[in-house]
Design a protein around this nucleic acid. Structure first.
Lengths: 336, 336
DNA sequence: TTGAAAGCGCTAACAA
DNA sequence: TTGTTAGCGCTTTCAA
């Protein structure tokens, strides 16, 4: 293995000069820098990560905790993960993958052993059991999602409450008076997952504000559940003309089910969704939607973390604004 | 930060005794072990990962390279990743996540800096550009998938060739004479992704052996493409009665498309798939399938790597046997 | 602008 | 069964 002393000897300088040439933490003459760089290339030198971590107390690794539970939409998780890795690499960091299963013990393990410098936690619940630990940890962390009590934590997410409101407002402005929210799987609510709760809050608040008749239906992530939900909606709210869907895997089967039940989208029923843009665009009838910007959220999480690692004061709360894009699935209510 | 010398002092032993008590690499008296463990707990000691890696030249971290390209089915990738992480943790290792994008440079970076002890590479192409590097690397690796020339590499995968054969054999034995393979997205074949190619080989070989009339159709991962493929199949092979689907996102829309075109499954058309078991079971008509055991493959990859890290001689090639499960989507051919 | 040298916290060879 | 000690390869302070 080539080490820093080998490079130093080859370049005719001291090891510290090589180190500084690499880190840029002190000025190096043009001439010396060139020699050092040439030697590094000639010898194929790569600094040893462990030695670096030991000497500098920085591992340049971030932990990413991904959820693996019922009701979460896997492609969205992957998009997050990829954007976290990509952004982290742009900041010269790597990403260690942890599963939710490892729980609090996993978090303290990687933090306390200095395996990672900082942590990103996904799928936060309103009353997440990991919060006290994250607050106490000596390493910075960023949550993707807002718990009920975010004080002392750094959180980033789409403004899901606004997303729920925007969908209802859009439907209300199109003249719809009876609306429903088809939400995530029941387990997601049982766990009090933050983002799901906030959509419900936004939906309900806006529906009340506009004096709409409204209902909320959790829905499991299967075509069968989608069909059952569609049937139930029509039974319980026969005058229904507006639906908000916050459940990716169910969006397409739900629209299909409505059409099979004789409701044309958007002629008889307007549908809006909160989901990744690509999904909304990919349906046979492109769906009016509030985009879920996974890549942006992941990138933002990493950047916040980099700020904290640099000792900067960063915003405790980053709510990415919800924006609604009109597509073919919504239309003014037909007058009876 | 609590360090090993603190623990040693607290327990009244030497640092090496603490180290050995932790690693079990030499016998420790019951009495001493108890004292050491008590001190570790009392002080909340956690060994510093970097210091460990430096002294032992083992980081206890594996690299996992995940694909992010068109035509790969994201949930399957996540299943792999999760099973790799879970299995790695069972062997006291962590997992560093790399994206395909980082390419060969990313592999040598994490290997040469000793950030990781070993690597797992997914989405291998028949003539993967990373193979020479992986062969030359001083650290062990395992490929998920078989390249054209696997000599000198350790590979694990489902026996996709056998999977393709099994599906055809099953159809042939049910009396079907005209069959088609609906494969992965065209890009996947352009890249010569190993598993997709092998399915085609198995499908074709078995069809020839049984003297079936057969055709292969790559298909993009969208409902629209599924529908177009269904129409094309019926146009080009009007006597078609058996279909093999090797394309997860397309399975359900394809079956729907066939039914809308007036073909009942399985009465008019028998459908088999190569896909995760859960997907095959979840359709309205459960699909006869060869299961893609992602979790098993991921676990096996980690175990092979652990063997190699322990200096064991492991099989160069691990082909998990393909097994076909009959479900409701296949039936004997109706006689005309 | 550069060099010398003291650690960073741990493991493992050597010695007892 | 245990202790002593020499590194592991790098960063960073101190000194020039």
């Amino acid at each position: 293995m080539v080490k820093i002393t080998d490079v130093a000897r080859h370049a005719g300088v001291s090891p510290s000069t090589v180190s500084y040439a690499l880190s840029g933490k002190r000025p190096i003459s043009e001439e010396t820098r060139r020699r050092v760089e040439a030697s590094i290339r000639a010898l194929g030198y790569r600094p040893h990560a462990g030695a670096r971590a030991l000497a500098s107390s920085k591992s340049n690794v971030l932990a990413l905790v991904v959820p693996l539970r019922a009701g979460i939409h896997v492609p969205v998780v992957m998009q997050f993960a990829v954007s976290v890795v990509t952004t982290a690499r742009a900041h010269d960091h790597d990403v260690l993958l942890l599963t939710q299963e490892e729980g609090e013990e996993g978090l303290s393990r990687v933090a306390d052993t200095a395996l990672v410098d900082a942590l990103i936690v996904m799928d936060v619940q309103l009353d997440d059991p990991r919060l006290p630990l994250l607050r106490a940890l000596e390493r910075p962390s960023v949550l993707i999602g807002f718990p009920a009590e975010p004080t002392g934590l750094t959180c980033v997410d789409l403004d899901f409450r606004a997303a729920g409101e925007l969908c209802v407002e859009h439907l209300a402005e199109l003249g719809h008076r009876v609306v429903a929210l088809v939400g995530s799987a029941p387990e997601v609510y049982v766990r009090r997952t933050a983002f799901a709760q906030r959509v419900v809050q936004g939906f309900t608040a806006a529906a009340d504000r506009y004096r709409l008749s409204s209902a909320v239906h959790p829905c499991a992530a299967s075509p069968a559940a989608a069909r059952a939900t569609a049937e139930r909606l029509l039974r319980e709210q026969p005058a229904l003309t507006g639906v908000v869907v916050h459940n990716e895997p169910v969006l397409e089967p739900l629209v299909d089910a409505f059409e099979q039940l004789g409701l044309r989208v958007p002629e008889d029923l307007s549908v809006t969704a909160i989901c990744p843009r690509e999904l909304a665009e990919s349906l046979r009838v492109p769906v009016t939607s509030v985009a879920l910007p996974s890549a942006e959220i992941g990138a933002r999480a990493v950047e916040l973390l980099m700020g904290k690692l640099d000792g900067a004061a960063v915003d405790e709360s980053t709510l990415l604004p919800a924006r609604l894009t009109r597509r073919a699935s919504t239309a003014p209510r037909k007058l009876p």
